[in-house]
């Protein structure tokens, strides 16, 4: 599924038109960075409540398709900066993580976990 379509369907902010060609192959949700690092497959969309810059380091290392910060919390300044620097699409939403994952699932995005 295309990231732009997901962003539109979930009304994620900011409203990005520039991520047209990013393919989302599945999803992963966790707030434990080592869990994401070890298990989330590449090209996943990652749903989290963590807001600090290391989220982007992890997302970049695992080749995540995008990060959604759920629950109405705003990322730290350094997180936004780093996301732009390394080219990871970063969205926020007021929806709680459970709702975000539910809506992604309804759109056809399935969980991705790699075997270690």
């Amino acid at each position: 599924m295309q990231l732009a379509a997901i962003a539109e369907a979930l009304s994620l902010s900011p409203d990005h038109g520039s991520f047209k060609d990013i393919e989302v192959k599945g999803g992963y949700s966790s707030d434990l960075l080592s869990d994401v690092m070890g298990k989330a497959a590449a090209k996943s969309i990652w749903v989290t409540n963590q807001i600090h810059p290391n989220v982007i380091a992890v997302a970049s290392l695992i080749d995540a398709a995008a990060v959604i910060i759920a629950g109405g919390v705003q990322p730290e300044e350094g997180t936004l900066k780093k996301a732009e620097e390394v080219g990871i699409p970063l969205f926020t939403t007021d929806l709680p993580a459970f709702e975000v994952v539910g809506q992604l699932y309804q759109l056809g995005v399935r969980g991705t976990a790699r075997s270690a």
Binding site: D31, L32, L33, S34, D35, M37, G38, T48, Q50, H52, N54, V55, A116
Partner: peptide, 16 residues
């Protein structure tokens, strides 16, 4: 609280 310290670091390394 930052999502570190889950006790998965060294096990992740060993598995990799």
């Amino acid at each position: 609280e930052m999502g570190f310290g889950a006790g998965m670091g060294l096990p992740n390394i060993r598995r990799s």
